[in-house]
Amino acid sequence: MDNLELKKIAAEARKDIIEMVYSASSGHPGGSLSGVEIAALLYFEIMDIPSFTDPDRDRFVLSKGHASPLLYSMLCAKGVVPKEELKTFRRMGSRLQGHPDMKKLPGVEMTTGSLGLGVGAAVGMALAGKTDKKNYSVYCLCGDGEIEEGSVWEACMSASHYKLDNFILIVDNNNLQIDGEIGKVMNPYPINEKLAAFGFDVVTAEDGNCFDCLRSAFGKLTEKNGRPKALVAKTVKGKGVSYMENQAKWHGSAPNENERDQAVNELDMELARLAEEEK
């Protein structure tokens, strides 16, 4: 898909994320916004998903389950979730639970929310694929704070042990967790070296909010060499909404009406710019 189309999808997804969190008066905008380009490239260019029930489909596991608005925005763009339903996010009876629930919403590959567990589940999917000699890949998006959980490293060890070159871990390296900078809260760096030591082929996307940069990085991670893959994507938390960028406070709080209006305004201007570009 060309970058212009992807950028339009990304801007729309950001608007959806803001509207969901605003409508619910709660949720996690910062880490949803940082991962938009990663998810958009996966869902609209890289992953092969003929349908969400096809046993041979590629799979996406959002291990950082609190970024559920990001996943829902993608499923909306994919036509699985109607636009109007986004307003039910976090409400009683909604399919759009605070954290993704695979039994409530088709297209959610794994129920996640307790950090560090989704990576292991994604490894299990990749292992099942290898066992059945299927060709699908499993993409798992985790947070950079999330890798403070020991279970992430248990999962990485097993992905390497079982030679899961169909497993691609993406670390959304926005450098912030709720309490502040990851290096100050509980330093998980150096991330690349750790993953490499666990047997991964590791590539950095210096700008994880740039499609060309991400595309190039993913392109280096396709070798079927018996090694699991990792992409460390340096992103900006709150990306695309000026006052949310690089602010830990927007990890888990919702904008008020004025803030929502400003965010939507900025994103509408971005969409207008893209429309100009198209002409």
């Binding site: 046993p55 596991v61 695979m102 590959e109 794994m110 567990l117 989704g118 990576v119 292991g120 589940a121 994604a122 490894v123 299990g124 999917m125 990749a126 292992l127 099942a128 694929g129 066992t131 059945d132 279970s151 999962a155 097993s158």
Partner: peptide, 10 residues
């Protein structure tokens, strides 16, 4: 967790 992922694949 790996078992959960395998169960999700049947």
């Amino acid at each position: 967790n790996v078992a959960a992922g395998m169960a999700a694949c049947g």
